[in-house]
């Protein structure tokens, strides 16, 4: 293996970066899957609930829940990018710095 790659592998900061970033990425992935499949299962099994009007109007619970699913996708990407481009990239920069 390339010497630099070996040095990075032995760097505790690299282990820290990997541990933190994978945990974060998988947590957010699971969150997205739970939200999406929760919505799909509601569509398959909870038609009655999604079709219940909110208050006296015709707007049903399905509308805000559907919109929430769309907005949550955007918010989750925002949360990830914010931490990855800040904290994780800083760790990454330090790891590359240690090679010199």
């Amino acid at each position: 293996m390339n010497q630099n790659a070996q040095r990075i592998l032995n760097n505790p900061k690299f282990q820290e970066l990997i541990a933190k970033r994978s945990a974060f990425a998988w947590t957010l992935s699971v969150a997205m899957l739970v939200i999406y499949y929760g919505f799909i299962l509601l569509v398959a099994f909870g038609k009655g609930f999604l079709g219940t009007p909110i208050g006296a109007g015709v707007t049903t619970w399905g509308i805000p829940i559907g919109l929430f699913t769309i907005v949550s996708a955007f918010i989750l990407t925002g949360i990830y990018v914010n931490r990855a481009n800040g904290e994780f990239d800083e760790l990454n920069r330090q790891i590359m710095e240690d090679l010199k």
Partner: peptide
């Protein structure tokens, strides 16, 4: 009506997964 929204949601939710697991 509402059913259209179910489709849109399906087309969108792949994107966060691409970001978390694939993009970088």
């Amino acid at each position: 009506g509402f059913d259209g929204l179910i489709f849109s949601v399906g087309w969108l939710v792949g994107w966060p997964i691409i970001l978390f697991l694939v993009a970088e």
